[in-house]
Computed example of a mutant assay.
Amino acid sequence: MTYFTARTVEGDFEAVVERTRGALQKHGFGVLTEIDVQATLKTKIGQDFRPYRILGACNPVMAHEALKMEPHVGVMLPCNVVVQQTEGGVEVFAVDPAASMSAIDNPELLRHAQKVGEHLGAAVADV
């Protein structure tokens, strides 16, 4: 079982980050958090790193449903979507929520996570 869905696209890194935000929004997700890994590693430990951005995406309706099914599921939220510069272009990849939620013994939550994953996968495909 893979734990993410991905695609590589051409374009400027920052432009792809913005396209990713737009695709997420189109599929009902907002970006709650953003971590610039490249800047953080440079600032905190003086290390150079490729452009790498982690977007914490959340679909509020779907998150609310998950929280009603499993009160501790918040430790696995939001869904991370990553944009990173590679030699072959800019890669966009998103967590497969069903892969992480399979650690919880709750079949209803797993079915719900699969639906969330379909929406995230569609967003990645739209970038």
Rank of each mutant, 00 (worst) to 15 (best):
T2Q: 03
Y3E: 01
F4R: 07
R7P: 04
T8E: 04
V9D: 11
F13D: 11
F13C: 10
E14D: 15
A15W: 01
V17I: 15
R19G: 02
R21K: 14
G22R: 12
G22F: 01
L24A: 10
L24E: 07
H27Y: 06
G28D: 13
G30I: 05
G30N: 02
G30W: 07
I35M: 15
D36F: 03
A39N: 10
L41N: 05
K42E: 11
K44C: 01
K44A: 13
I45F: 00
I45Q: 01
R50W: 02
P51M: 08
Y52P: 04
C58L: 10
N59P: 11
P60M: 14
M62P: 09
H64Y: 11
A66P: 07
A66F: 01
K68T: 13
M69A: 12
E70P: 09
E70Q: 14
P71M: 07
P71D: 07
H72V: 00
V73K: 05
V73F: 04
V75E: 03
P78W: 05
C79F: 02
N80M: 06
N80F: 02
V81W: 12
V83H: 09
Q85T: 09
Q85A: 15
E87T: 08
G88T: 07
F93A: 06
F93S: 09
A94F: 01
V95M: 13
V95D: 03
P97D: 13
A98Q: 08
A99N: 05
P107W: 03
P107S: 10
E108C: 00
E108Y: 04
E108K: 03
L110T: 13
R111V: 09
H112S: 11
Q114W: 00
Q114D: 07
K115T: 12
V116S: 09
G117A: 12
E118K: 13
H119Y: 08
L120Q: 02
G121D: 08
V127C: 03
